[in-house]
Simulated scan of single mutants.
Amino acid sequence: MYTFQQQLQHIQDGKGFIAALDQSGGSTPKALLGYGIDESQYKDETEMFQLIHEMRTRVISNKNFTEDKILGVILFENTMKGTIDTKPVPTYLLEKNIVPFLKVDKGLEDLNHGVKLMKPIPNLEARLLEAKKLGVFGTKMRSVIYENNPKGIAEIVKQQFAVGLEILACGLIPILEPEVDIHAKEKSEIEAVLKKNIRLELDKLKGNQSIILKLTLPSVPDFYKDLVNHSKVIRVFALSGGYDIETANSLLAKNKGVVASFSRALLNNLKEQQSDDEFSSTLEDAIDSIYNASIT
């Protein structure tokens, strides 16, 4: 099973991408609907989460879901505490040499200054220590930028880095995800302000403090090249952000050194009603296409 240092090396230098399987309470019904299960097929939250766990289990346990193309998986907390083949999910992943991450944010605040900050994250240290005991390597947390408001963008970045430092102090590696909405009117201008603020916070990191970034695919190809090469950035991942898989892959391939951390683009064509062979073939096609875009 991977040691922490081996996991770090795998994430930093490995070929492949991260699968984001971290849909939480608010986004789970939509994810299930995309999978072919509507709300009439479950009566409460318990059944809903059981169904999404079965979907994730079907993906993770598939023969095509392997370390040579999948670097890591971002898990929802319920999934982290669940099992596959009687093993804790992080253990199952580590035995496949795939690195487990935990989504730690608790959703978004209302829009203010053109952004949605993260809501407070209660009991963060206790949750991080529990995750670490289960073998989790790192975390992910998301906030969203909708408008070119320098005050709001600065607040987003400062919050991401402040929580990131708490995560580093607990011995885990944070993925910071200040998402830019793909429909934002001044998307490229927002990305310029975002990058400037990220660089300011990176320069404050000390010693061996390093983070992972997960960013919206930029309007200008290779715009985040200096972040990819920054000594305090372990890796830059890209989110699909609502793009279909073909568009996301096309944009990703234009950004050298950036690799995918896709959710919807990975899962979109998978259906509960598919036979095992159909499901496996569809998943293989998605994995191969995202992998190829990630290593271009």
Results as ranks from 00 to 15, higher is better:
Ile60Asp: 01
Ile60Trp: 08
Ser61Phe: 02
Asn64Pro: 04
Asn64Glu: 13
Phe65Ile: 04
Thr66Asp: 08
Thr66Gln: 15
Glu67Ser: 15
Lys69Thr: 14
Lys69Arg: 15
Leu71Cys: 10
Leu71His: 12
Leu71Phe: 10
Ile74Glu: 00
Glu77Asn: 09
Met80Ala: 13
Lys81Glu: 08
Lys81Pro: 03
Thr83Phe: 09
Thr83Gln: 15
Ile84Ala: 03
Ile84Gly: 04
Lys87Phe: 14
Lys87Val: 10
Pro90His: 14
Thr91Pro: 02
Glu95Leu: 14
Lys96Tyr: 03
Ile98Asn: 01
Pro100Leu: 06
Pro100Thr: 02
Leu102Trp: 10
Gly107Thr: 11
Asn112Glu: 08
Leu117His: 06
Leu117Ile: 06
Met118Arg: 02
Lys119Arg: 15
Ile121Phe: 03
Pro122Arg: 03
Pro122Leu: 01
Asn123Lys: 14
Leu128Trp: 07
Ala131Gly: 06
Lys132Ser: 10
Leu134Trp: 02
Gly138Ile: 12
Ser143Glu: 00
Ser143Arg: 11
Tyr146Gly: 00
Glu147Pro: 06
Asn148Val: 00
Asn148Glu: 01
Ala154Asn: 11
Glu155Lys: 14
Glu155Pro: 00
Ile156Pro: 10
Glu166Gln: 15
Ile167Gln: 09
Ala169Gly: 02
Cys170Asn: 10
Gly171Thr: 09
Pro174Val: 11
Glu179Lys: 11
Glu186Cys: 02
Lys187Gly: 03
Ser188Leu: 03
Ser188Tyr: 05
Glu189Pro: 00
